[in-house]
Computed example of a mutant assay.
Amino acid sequence: MIYIVMAYLWASVLLYILMGGADFGAGILEFFSTRKSQERTRTVMYRAIGPIWEANHMWLIIAIVILFVGFPVIYTTMSVYLHIPLTIMLLGIIARGTAFTFRNYDAVKDQLQVVYSKTFMYSSVITPLFLGIIAGSAVSGSINPKATHFADAYIFSWLTPFSLAVGIFTVTICGFLAAIFIIGETKSETDKTRFVKKSKHMSIAALLAAALVFAIAFLEDIPLTHWLFGNAVSVACVALAVASLIWMWVSLFTKQTKLLRVIAGAQVTLLLVAITYEHYPVLINLKDSEGLSLLDNYGSPKTIQSLAVALIAGSIFILPSLFYLLYSFSNKREA
Protein backbone atom coordinates (compact mmCIF):
# COMPACT_ATOMS: atom_id res chain seq x y z
CA MET A 1 0.00 0.00 0.00
CA ILE A 2 2.86 2.38 0.72
CA TYR A 3 3.93 2.24 -2.91
CA ILE A 4 0.41 3.15 -4.05
CA VAL A 5 0.46 6.19 -1.77
CA MET A 6 3.93 7.17 -3.03
CA ALA A 7 2.77 6.83 -6.64
CA TYR A 8 -0.19 9.13 -5.96
CA LEU A 9 2.12 11.65 -4.30
CA TRP A 10 4.46 11.69 -7.31
CA ALA A 11 1.57 11.87 -9.78
CA SER A 12 -0.02 14.75 -7.84
CA VAL A 13 3.21 16.75 -7.98
CA LEU A 14 3.55 16.07 -11.71
CA LEU A 15 -0.05 17.05 -12.49
CA TYR A 16 0.26 20.22 -10.42
CA ILE A 17 3.37 21.19 -12.37
CA LEU A 18 1.66 20.49 -15.69
CA MET A 19 -1.81 21.91 -15.06
CA GLY A 20 -1.18 24.34 -12.24
CA GLY A 21 2.05 25.40 -13.94
CA ALA A 22 0.23 26.24 -17.15
CA ASP A 23 -2.35 28.09 -15.05
CA PHE A 24 0.35 30.24 -13.38
CA GLY A 25 1.98 30.65 -16.78
CA ALA A 26 -1.07 32.52 -18.03
CA GLY A 27 -0.28 35.36 -15.63
CA ILE A 28 3.44 35.08 -16.35
CA LEU A 29 2.87 35.55 -20.08
CA GLU A 30 0.62 38.51 -19.37
CA PHE A 31 3.28 39.95 -17.05
CA PHE A 32 5.93 39.75 -19.77
CA SER A 33 3.68 41.04 -22.56
CA THR A 34 3.86 44.59 -23.83
CA ARG A 35 1.10 46.95 -22.80
CA LYS A 36 -0.14 46.90 -26.36
CA SER A 37 -0.63 43.13 -26.41
CA GLN A 38 -1.56 42.59 -22.75
CA GLU A 39 -5.28 43.01 -23.33
CA ARG A 40 -5.36 40.47 -26.16
CA THR A 41 -3.18 38.04 -24.20
CA ARG A 42 -5.50 38.44 -21.21
CA THR A 43 -8.59 37.73 -23.32
CA VAL A 44 -7.17 34.58 -24.92
CA MET A 45 -5.83 33.29 -21.60
CA TYR A 46 -9.14 33.87 -19.82
CA ARG A 47 -11.02 31.94 -22.47
CA ALA A 48 -8.60 29.04 -22.04
CA ILE A 49 -8.18 28.81 -18.24
CA GLY A 50 -11.33 30.52 -16.99
CA PRO A 51 -13.59 27.46 -16.77
CA ILE A 52 -11.11 25.17 -14.99
CA TRP A 53 -8.60 27.40 -13.19
CA GLU A 54 -9.80 26.46 -9.72
CA ALA A 55 -9.59 22.70 -10.34
CA ASN A 56 -5.83 22.89 -10.95
CA HIS A 57 -5.04 23.37 -7.25
CA MET A 58 -6.72 20.05 -6.48
CA TRP A 59 -3.40 18.31 -7.19
CA LEU A 60 -1.56 20.47 -4.64
CA ILE A 61 -4.22 19.75 -2.03
CA ILE A 62 -3.91 16.01 -2.67
CA ALA A 63 -0.12 16.15 -2.29
CA ILE A 64 -0.41 18.09 0.99
CA VAL A 65 -3.02 15.69 2.36
CA ILE A 66 -0.85 12.69 1.46
CA LEU A 67 2.13 14.19 3.28
CA PHE A 68 0.05 15.27 6.28
CA VAL A 69 -1.69 11.91 6.72
CA GLY A 70 0.86 9.44 5.42
CA PHE A 71 4.23 11.05 6.18
CA PRO A 72 3.81 13.27 9.27
CA VAL A 73 7.55 13.59 10.00
CA ILE A 74 8.28 14.84 6.49
CA TYR A 75 5.25 17.14 6.54
CA THR A 76 6.32 18.59 9.89
CA THR A 77 9.89 19.16 8.73
CA MET A 78 8.74 21.03 5.62
CA SER A 79 6.05 23.07 7.37
CA VAL A 80 8.44 24.12 10.17
CA TYR A 81 11.70 24.89 8.38
CA LEU A 82 10.09 26.14 5.16
CA HIS A 83 7.09 27.88 6.71
CA ILE A 84 8.06 31.29 5.31
CA PRO A 85 8.21 30.33 1.60
CA LEU A 86 5.19 28.05 2.08
CA THR A 87 3.19 30.93 3.54
CA ILE A 88 4.22 33.28 0.72
CA MET A 89 3.29 30.66 -1.88
CA LEU A 90 -0.13 30.05 -0.31
CA LEU A 91 -0.78 33.80 -0.02
CA GLY A 92 0.15 34.07 -3.68
CA ILE A 93 -2.40 31.40 -4.59
CA ILE A 94 -5.09 33.20 -2.59
CA ALA A 95 -4.25 36.63 -4.02
CA ARG A 96 -4.11 35.28 -7.55
CA GLY A 97 -7.44 33.48 -7.26
CA THR A 98 -9.14 36.48 -5.71
CA ALA A 99 -7.78 38.85 -8.34
CA PHE A 100 -8.78 36.51 -11.15
CA THR A 101 -12.33 36.25 -9.84
CA PHE A 102 -12.89 39.98 -9.32
CA ARG A 103 -11.16 40.93 -12.57
CA ASN A 104 -13.33 38.65 -14.67
CA TYR A 105 -16.61 38.38 -12.76
CA ASP A 106 -16.96 41.69 -10.90
CA ALA A 107 -20.30 43.32 -11.73
CA VAL A 108 -18.71 46.78 -11.65
CA LYS A 109 -15.83 47.56 -14.01
CA ASP A 110 -13.87 50.46 -12.53
CA GLN A 111 -10.30 51.51 -11.72
CA LEU A 112 -9.93 48.55 -9.37
CA GLN A 113 -9.59 46.40 -12.47
CA VAL A 114 -6.04 47.74 -12.74
CA VAL A 115 -5.32 46.59 -9.18
CA TYR A 116 -6.82 43.18 -9.87
CA SER A 117 -4.74 42.78 -13.04
CA LYS A 118 -1.48 43.75 -11.35
CA THR A 119 -2.22 41.47 -8.41
CA PHE A 120 -2.98 38.60 -10.77
CA MET A 121 0.24 39.10 -12.74
CA TYR A 122 2.57 39.60 -9.77
CA SER A 123 1.14 36.67 -7.81
CA SER A 124 1.37 34.49 -10.92
CA VAL A 125 5.13 35.09 -10.87
CA ILE A 126 5.65 35.01 -7.10
CA THR A 127 3.75 31.75 -6.49
CA PRO A 128 5.74 29.44 -8.83
CA LEU A 129 8.93 31.26 -7.80
CA PHE A 130 8.44 30.18 -4.20
CA LEU A 131 7.20 26.76 -5.25
CA GLY A 132 10.56 26.28 -6.97
CA ILE A 133 12.39 27.70 -3.95
CA ILE A 134 10.70 25.12 -1.74
CA ALA A 135 11.65 22.30 -4.13
CA GLY A 136 15.24 23.53 -4.36
CA SER A 137 15.50 23.77 -0.58
CA ALA A 138 14.15 20.26 -0.12
CA VAL A 139 16.72 18.61 -2.41
CA SER A 140 19.79 20.77 -1.83
CA GLY A 141 20.46 19.89 1.81
CA SER A 142 20.07 23.46 3.04
CA ILE A 143 17.58 22.58 5.80
CA ASN A 144 19.52 22.37 9.06
CA PRO A 145 17.56 20.65 11.90
CA LYS A 146 20.49 21.32 14.26
CA ALA A 147 20.38 25.10 13.77
CA THR A 148 20.29 27.15 16.96
CA HIS A 149 19.57 30.58 15.46
CA PHE A 150 16.35 31.77 13.80
CA ALA A 151 18.07 32.88 10.59
CA ASP A 152 19.93 29.59 10.16
CA ALA A 153 16.81 27.53 10.82
CA TYR A 154 14.10 29.50 9.04
CA ILE A 155 15.78 31.91 6.59
CA PHE A 156 18.90 30.30 5.20
CA SER A 157 17.10 26.98 4.98
CA TRP A 158 15.52 28.33 1.78
CA LEU A 159 17.13 31.68 0.95
CA THR A 160 20.07 30.27 -1.00
CA PRO A 161 21.34 30.95 -4.54
CA PHE A 162 20.49 27.40 -5.64
CA SER A 163 16.92 27.57 -4.34
CA LEU A 164 16.41 30.98 -5.97
CA ALA A 165 17.76 29.61 -9.27
CA VAL A 166 15.35 26.66 -9.09
CA GLY A 167 12.56 29.16 -8.39
CA ILE A 168 13.44 31.16 -11.51
CA PHE A 169 13.59 27.95 -13.53
CA THR A 170 10.11 27.01 -12.27
CA VAL A 171 8.73 30.39 -13.38
CA THR A 172 10.13 29.91 -16.89
CA ILE A 173 8.75 26.36 -17.08
CA CYS A 174 5.29 27.62 -16.14
CA GLY A 175 5.45 30.34 -18.78
CA PHE A 176 6.67 27.81 -21.34
CA LEU A 177 3.82 25.37 -20.57
CA ALA A 178 1.20 28.11 -20.77
CA ALA A 179 2.50 29.36 -24.13
CA ILE A 180 2.57 25.84 -25.56
CA PHE A 181 -0.83 24.82 -24.20
CA ILE A 182 -2.54 28.01 -25.35
CA ILE A 183 -1.54 27.55 -29.00
CA GLY A 184 -4.17 24.83 -29.37
CA GLU A 185 -6.85 27.13 -27.93
CA THR A 186 -6.42 29.90 -30.48
CA LYS A 187 -8.51 30.18 -33.63
CA SER A 188 -6.88 33.33 -34.97
CA GLU A 189 -3.68 32.90 -36.98
CA THR A 190 -2.45 36.17 -35.50
CA ASP A 191 -2.90 34.85 -31.97
CA LYS A 192 -1.31 31.53 -32.91
CA THR A 193 1.73 33.31 -34.34
CA ARG A 194 2.01 35.46 -31.19
CA PHE A 195 1.95 32.46 -28.86
CA VAL A 196 4.34 30.46 -31.02
CA LYS A 197 6.74 33.37 -30.61
CA LYS A 198 6.13 33.45 -26.86
CA SER A 199 6.78 29.69 -26.72
CA LYS A 200 10.16 30.16 -28.34
CA HIS A 201 11.06 32.98 -25.95
CA MET A 202 9.99 31.03 -22.85
CA SER A 203 11.81 27.93 -24.09
CA ILE A 204 15.03 29.93 -24.40
CA ALA A 205 14.42 31.48 -20.97
CA ALA A 206 13.95 28.00 -19.47
CA LEU A 207 17.22 26.79 -21.02
CA LEU A 208 19.08 29.81 -19.64
CA ALA A 209 17.51 29.30 -16.21
CA ALA A 210 18.51 25.61 -16.31
CA ALA A 211 22.08 26.64 -17.11
CA LEU A 212 21.97 29.00 -14.11
CA VAL A 213 20.80 26.15 -11.86
CA PHE A 214 23.68 23.93 -13.03
CA ALA A 215 26.23 26.72 -12.59
CA ILE A 216 25.12 27.51 -9.03
CA ALA A 217 24.91 23.80 -8.16
CA PHE A 218 28.55 23.47 -9.26
CA LEU A 219 29.61 26.49 -7.19
CA GLU A 220 27.72 25.28 -4.11
CA ASP A 221 28.96 21.70 -4.52
CA ILE A 222 25.45 20.31 -4.98
CA PRO A 223 25.67 17.02 -6.96
CA LEU A 224 23.05 17.96 -9.53
CA THR A 225 25.12 16.53 -12.39
CA HIS A 226 25.35 13.20 -10.57
CA TRP A 227 21.60 13.19 -9.93
CA LEU A 228 20.86 13.62 -13.63
CA PHE A 229 23.71 11.61 -15.16
CA GLY A 230 24.62 9.15 -12.42
CA ASN A 231 22.30 6.34 -13.50
CA ALA A 232 20.99 4.89 -16.74
CA VAL A 233 17.34 5.83 -16.12
CA SER A 234 18.06 9.53 -15.56
CA VAL A 235 20.45 9.67 -18.52
CA ALA A 236 17.80 8.10 -20.77
CA CYS A 237 15.17 10.56 -19.54
CA VAL A 238 17.46 13.56 -20.12
CA ALA A 239 18.35 12.28 -23.60
CA LEU A 240 14.67 11.84 -24.50
CA ALA A 241 13.87 15.30 -23.10
CA VAL A 242 16.58 16.86 -25.29
CA ALA A 243 15.33 14.95 -28.33
CA SER A 244 11.76 16.07 -27.67
CA LEU A 245 12.99 19.67 -27.28
CA ILE A 246 14.49 19.50 -30.78
CA TRP A 247 11.26 17.99 -32.08
CA MET A 248 9.28 20.76 -30.40
CA TRP A 249 11.42 23.50 -31.97
CA VAL A 250 11.00 21.94 -35.41
CA SER A 251 7.24 21.79 -34.84
CA LEU A 252 7.19 25.44 -33.76
CA PHE A 253 9.09 26.64 -36.82
CA THR A 254 6.93 24.56 -39.17
CA LYS A 255 3.79 25.48 -37.20
CA GLN A 256 2.80 21.83 -36.75
CA THR A 257 1.17 22.54 -33.42
CA LYS A 258 -1.10 19.51 -32.89
CA LEU A 259 1.38 17.50 -30.81
CA LEU A 260 3.00 20.40 -28.97
CA ARG A 261 1.06 19.82 -25.74
CA VAL A 262 2.05 16.16 -25.69
CA ILE A 263 5.69 17.03 -26.33
CA ALA A 264 5.79 19.71 -23.63
CA GLY A 265 4.07 17.45 -21.12
CA ALA A 266 6.48 14.63 -21.94
CA GLN A 267 9.48 16.94 -21.44
CA VAL A 268 8.39 17.97 -17.95
CA THR A 269 7.52 14.37 -17.04
CA LEU A 270 10.92 13.11 -18.20
CA LEU A 271 12.76 15.81 -16.26
CA LEU A 272 10.81 15.02 -13.10
CA VAL A 273 11.58 11.31 -13.47
CA ALA A 274 15.26 12.10 -14.05
CA ILE A 275 15.62 14.29 -10.97
CA THR A 276 13.57 12.08 -8.60
CA TYR A 277 14.92 8.68 -9.64
CA GLU A 278 18.34 9.21 -8.07
CA HIS A 279 16.74 10.63 -4.90
CA TYR A 280 14.25 7.81 -4.41
CA PRO A 281 13.01 7.19 -1.76
CA VAL A 282 14.45 10.33 -0.08
CA LEU A 283 12.15 13.35 -0.32
CA ILE A 284 14.14 15.86 1.75
CA ASN A 285 17.91 16.12 2.02
CA LEU A 286 19.02 17.55 5.36
CA LYS A 287 22.23 19.42 6.11
CA ASP A 288 24.98 17.29 7.69
CA SER A 289 22.59 14.38 8.29
CA GLU A 290 20.65 11.66 6.52
CA GLY A 291 17.72 12.66 4.37
CA LEU A 292 14.09 11.89 5.14
CA SER A 293 13.02 8.78 3.25
CA LEU A 294 9.42 8.03 2.32
CA LEU A 295 10.02 4.38 3.19
CA ASP A 296 11.38 5.17 6.66
CA ASN A 297 9.07 7.97 7.73
CA TYR A 298 5.51 6.92 6.97
CA GLY A 299 2.58 6.53 9.34
CA SER A 300 1.10 3.39 10.78
CA PRO A 301 0.28 0.53 8.35
CA LYS A 302 -3.45 0.98 9.00
CA THR A 303 -3.21 4.68 8.20
CA ILE A 304 -1.35 4.00 4.96
CA GLN A 305 -3.86 1.30 4.00
CA SER A 306 -6.82 3.60 4.62
CA LEU A 307 -5.10 6.42 2.73
CA ALA A 308 -4.39 4.19 -0.27
CA VAL A 309 -8.01 2.98 -0.38
CA ALA A 310 -9.27 6.57 -0.12
CA LEU A 311 -7.01 7.72 -2.96
CA ILE A 312 -8.10 4.87 -5.24
CA ALA A 313 -11.79 5.41 -4.43
CA GLY A 314 -11.42 9.15 -4.94
CA SER A 315 -9.82 8.60 -8.33
CA ILE A 316 -12.77 6.49 -9.46
CA PHE A 317 -15.19 9.33 -8.70
CA ILE A 318 -13.12 12.46 -9.31
CA LEU A 319 -11.09 11.74 -12.44
CA PRO A 320 -14.06 10.97 -14.74
CA SER A 321 -15.75 14.17 -13.53
CA LEU A 322 -12.59 16.18 -14.19
CA PHE A 323 -12.19 14.77 -17.68
CA TYR A 324 -15.85 15.53 -18.38
CA LEU A 325 -15.32 19.11 -17.15
CA LEU A 326 -12.40 19.55 -19.55
CA TYR A 327 -14.36 17.96 -22.38
CA SER A 328 -17.47 20.07 -21.75
CA PHE A 329 -15.68 23.41 -21.73
CA SER A 330 -13.52 22.39 -24.68
CA ASN A 331 -16.66 21.82 -26.73
CA LYS A 332 -18.16 25.06 -25.41
CA ARG A 333 -15.15 27.03 -26.63
CA GLU A 334 -15.40 25.40 -30.04
CA ALA A 335 -19.11 26.15 -30.32
Rank of each mutant, 00 (worst) to 15 (best):
V13W: 03
M78G: 06
A48D: 04
N56W: 08
R47P: 04
I61Q: 10
H83A: 04
V73A: 15
H57G: 04
V44S: 10
T43A: 14
L82I: 10
V69K: 08
L86W: 02
A22N: 06
R47Q: 11
A48V: 04
G50Y: 11
A11M: 13
A26M: 13
A55T: 14
H57E: 14
P51A: 06
T76E: 05
G20V: 06
F24C: 04
Y46R: 12
I64C: 09
A55W: 11
Q38R: 15
G20H: 02
L29D: 07
Y46T: 12
E54H: 14
A7G: 03
S12I: 10
I66Q: 01
T34Y: 05
M89R: 01
L18G: 08
L18N: 12
V5C: 02
A26P: 00
S12C: 10
I4M: 06
A22C: 09
R47S: 13
F68Q: 02
E30A: 11
L67N: 06
A26H: 11
M6R: 10
K36I: 08
V73E: 10
L67S: 04
L67D: 09
Y81N: 09
M19F: 14
L86S: 05
W59I: 10
F31V: 03
F68T: 08
I64H: 00
I4N: 00
M78Y: 01
L9Y: 10
I17Q: 09
L60S: 07
R35W: 06
T87D: 04
W59E: 07
Y46G: 15
Y3L: 11
I88L: 13
L9M: 11
M6K: 09
L14T: 05
I66S: 00
F68N: 02
L82V: 05
N56M: 12
V44P: 05
I61G: 03
T41C: 12
M19I: 15
S33H: 08
R47D: 14
S33P: 06
M89D: 02
R42A: 12
G25V: 02
V65W: 06
G20Y: 02
